[in-house]
């Protein structure tokens, strides 16, 4: 069997290096959300390597690239429109309410 093409071999090596990097960095305490930002940044880099060199997306016909972009676009809509709910919820403490008894809606008890 012939040796693998160099671009594929280098991509594989880069993916393994990024895996080692993300594993190591996960154990380093960082301020705020830096750990997850770095971890997901490395994941995006790995995904781009796979998309570009293994799946040859950026050399694919325009229609194919549009299909791939549409997937990400709708994912962005899913997260963005959900965020308009979850990020704008305001939880207010209303004090201690009595436990329901089941007789709240009986006639004469309004």
């Amino acid at each position: 069997m012939k040796a693998p093409p160099l671009p594929l071999l280098l991509t594989w090596a880069a993916l393994l290096a990024l895996l080692a990097m993300t594993l190591g960095l996960a154990y380093v305490p960082m301020p705020g959300p830096m750990n997850v930002v770095l971890a997901l940044g490395i994941s995006v880099a790995k995904a781009l390597l796979v998309l570009a060199l293994f799946m040859k997306l950026f050399r694919a016909p325009t229609l194919t690239r549009a299909a791939a972009a549409a997937g990400l676009f709708w994912l962005a809509i899913l997260f963005a429109l959900s965020a308009t709910d979850y990020l704008t919820r305001k939880v207010e403490h209303v004090g201690d309410l009595p436990a329901p008894t089941g007789s709240e809606h009986q006639p004469g008890n309004r």
Partner: peptide, 21 residues
């Protein structure tokens, strides 16, 4: 490759969360 990419994102979300704590 797509199945691989899904795992690339699952790996930090599942296994790396909380490791620096």
């Amino acid at each position: 490759h797509f199945v691989d990419i899904v795992w690339i994102f699952l790996y930090p979300l599942i296994y790396l969360v909380g490791r620096s704590g």
